[in-house]
Design a protein around this nucleic acid. Sequence first.
DNA 1: GTCAAATATAGTTGATCAAATCTGGTTGGC
DNA 2: GCCAACCAGATTTGATCAACTATATTTGAC
Lengths: 225, 225
Amino acid sequence: MEHRTMSEAAAAHIHEMIITGELEPGQPIRLIDLAQRLGTSPMPIREGLRKLESLGIVEIIAHRGAWVRELDLDDFRDTTATRLTLETIAVRQAAQRFDDVAAAASRTALDQLVAAVEAGDAVGARAAHTEFHFAIYGACGSRWLPRAIEPVWRNSERYRFGTHFTAEHLERTRREHERILQACIAHDEETAASAFTEHLTTAAERIESGMLARQGRRPSGASAP
Amino acid sequence: MEHRTMSEAAAAHIHEMIITGELEPGQPIRLIDLAQRLGTSPMPIREGLRKLESLGIVEIIAHRGAWVRELDLDDFRDTTATRLTLETIAVRQAAQRFDDVAAAASRTALDQLVAAVEAGDAVGARAAHTEFHFAIYGACGSRWLPRAIEPVWRNSERYRFGTHFTAEHLERTRREHERILQACIAHDEETAASAFTEHLTTAAERIESGMLARQGRRPSGASAP
DNA sequence: GTCAAATATAGTTGATCAAATCTGGTTGGC
DNA sequence: GCCAACCAGATTTGATCAACTATATTTGAC
């Protein structure tokens, strides 16, 4: 069994629909429509939306409804800058106290990421990518720092998905991940931090140029599926 | 009307009950009991608990129930260290770009805090204290950084409430707040950061020594489910 | 003493009712 | 005759109640 309750399944399903663009930014989410599409009553949908609201993906206004939060360049830059601040700190702290358990967990996730990418499994790749980074952040010694990172990370994922990755990009990303992991295992704080900074910065530049290109082609519009 | 929906009212009410200790750490929260006590059906209680879960105050296990998260010294130190990291960054950034709107908002909140303290209004003082700090963080230029801070802050509040403040402590705290605000208005990043660090550090030391004293008196500690 | 089946308890979901919001048309004032 | 405010219908969310399902406990047999 994948999810323990309908609410969890609904949250995961809606999250997926938002990331893939099946539910578009700015679009109102109608409870009854969605309930019928997922084959449940409106109640689990409500619960799922509440979860997504707490992650900052969905906006709920009382007696009015729920909307998929809009994406724009300013928000992306804010998201990236905040991630750079918080996650660099987490990586540094993790490198200092990286142990075998953390090494095994991040190694497994990284292997799964590579496998999913090769299999063309976008959903699995996204899950493994999150798993890898949070396996590292989880070793930072704080329970609260990874928790603080999560909403920003989830928002960042929305931008990441819309971007096209060439084989070259994927290979470069794989090497960057490997370098971060090796630096953590070696307790090399400085290398881990700089490798992470470079990883996030280059990825952000790639995504931003993709956004600018799309913006140039379609001056007015929102994002596409 | 204070709250727009029963769920919001329930979340606020339960939050208050947890902070004041009416619901004790480790204690299971029975939906039906609470629903009867607040005069609603279980559903709004559930929604409220979900909100508190996303803040890390309550732990929910599917088909099992909800518990008030336990407090201990390790968690307090983690909370404090994380706050010190994140909020110092926010204060620095806020000081760089502090404008009249932010100044007015934090000034108002600070005056309300002083008034609430003098009136012996603990609930109002807590609200105003949060308002003051987040008025500053809100000026940091990022929408995501304050959002990342919120759960850690909410957890910190739980420890803060249990502590006794002497008139001397309150007066010192008032001066510290004033100093932070003035440094932000003056765009003096360094002074703002060091004033904030001192503010949080001394408060944390006070709370920690209070915890140690209580621990000494009651060696066995908290309750179990 | 251990394991399995039955029972009790509490959480979760579905169906229905009530409350709030938005839309379009109409009426009254200027 | 034009503009603004208001009222009624339709739509959608929010809350309640009842039925279902998963979990924990107890009891009885081996």
